[in-house]
Simulated scan of single mutants.
Amino acid sequence: MPETFTKWVACWGNATSITDRKEATYAKDLTLRYPIRACFSGNKLRFHFSNLTGTEPVTISEAYVAKDVPTPITFGGRASAAIPAGEEILSDEIAFDVTAGETFDVSLYFADFTQMNAGTAITGPLSGGKYSYGNFAKSATLPDDLTRKTNWIYFLNTIDIYTEEKNFALVCFGDSITAQDWPDYLTLRCAREGFNNVSIIRRAVSGTRILREYSCITYAAYGLKGATRFPIEMNVAGARAVIVQHGINDIIHPVGVEVNKFRPWSDMPTADDLINGVRTLYIMHARKLGLKIYSGTLLPIYGWRTYNENRDIIRVAFNQWLRTAPDFDGCVDFDAAVRGHDDPKRFAGGFDSGDHLHPSAKAYEAMAECVPEELLK
């Protein structure tokens, strides 16, 4: 029986946040190329572009989607489009046949000076792209001498595919733990185990907190606070549920103004502060959207440079609520999946990346494996 395509579902997506403020914040005559693995079959694509954290308009000079021959991405029939500061735009619907499991490329060209202030850094076996100096958006290959790899995803925010009714999206919301590898490993697990009707949409920003955000350029790339992020990032076609793994940065960031003027002790939350934040910022909004919401427990932090016993007491108390609160539809116990059996304050052997905060690749695989099947069916 031929496939019947009836609805739009997000098949790829990331957050958009403030990029790291380096000496150079503008690019000119630049091509970006991002490979996208198709999790669903479909016959049309549409593309969301975001300049959410930009302070001036950004103009996409040309954009293409390609497997072999490049197909123009258009905006109201035009090849070029401006993204106003602080806003997002949606492309035209592009006729483009996609088969689940194959990879296509999205290429963007920026001719004029472009403020590179809207994007996010992600890692994982399916993540990353390339940039080239010059206009190679229509080229089948990028020139080696003018091209480098990048883990920054600029402007391209979400890709929707017109696909079968049975397909749906699962959103993974969080900070650097989620901006790193486990959502990619979850995508690979779904392909391996035959969960073929779910896409894994990542909405994660390194350094971000539930309750607060930074206004200084030193920490600007830590991103927007949860109250700002969540309503924007839950705009996901075909989403059924969201896993929220967020809050560790609220606990580990404050050090006192005598150590860092931007990180006062007054920013230090209680477990109840975090609980109230999740209830009012995440759970209530997810319910308004008709989404199921699953909690994700916070990982061990013993040995992290700001670790102390009080911080861990807060983490443990917050985790206990995340595991047992009836507010959620369930819990994904990431902490239990990666902590040591003899010393639960620490990562299990081989599961620490070395900084005592972020997991190793092996641990990220374990996180992906512990996601309950009920979220993937």
Score class of each variant (00 low, 15 high):
284 M>I: 12
377 K>V: 05
237 A>Q: 06
281 L>I: 14
110 F>W: 01
15 A>V: 09
24 A>M: 14
339 R>M: 08
51 N>S: 03
255 V>N: 04
300 P>E: 13
176 S>K: 04
355 D>T: 09
27 A>T: 13
228 T>W: 06
270 T>A: 02
359 P>K: 06
319 N>A: 09
309 E>Y: 11
153 I>Q: 14
323 R>S: 13
153 I>S: 02
172 C>N: 13
338 V>I: 09
227 A>M: 12
224 L>T: 05
169 A>C: 01
166 K>W: 04
13 G>Y: 02
132 S>W: 01
330 G>K: 01
296 G>Q: 09
39 C>S: 10
350 G>Q: 05
260 N>A: 10
8 W>S: 04
232 I>M: 12
102 E>Y: 02
81 A>G: 07
183 P>K: 04
290 G>V: 04
122 I>N: 02
64 Y>M: 02
19 T>C: 13
207 G>F: 12
330 G>C: 09
308 N>R: 05
88 E>D: 07
353 S>C: 07
223 G>N: 08
111 A>Q: 02
280 T>W: 01
330 G>R: 03
241 A>V: 12
74 T>A: 04
288 K>M: 08
154 Y>Q: 04
377 K>G: 13
310 N>Q: 14
37 R>P: 11
193 E>I: 09
26 Y>W: 11
278 V>K: 10
244 V>Y: 02
246 H>R: 03
256 G>C: 05
156 L>E: 00
132 S>P: 03
174 G>H: 01
85 A>N: 07
124 G>Y: 01
346 R>T: 07
298 L>M: 09
241 A>H: 07
219 Y>C: 08
197 N>R: 15
290 G>R: 11
203 R>D: 13
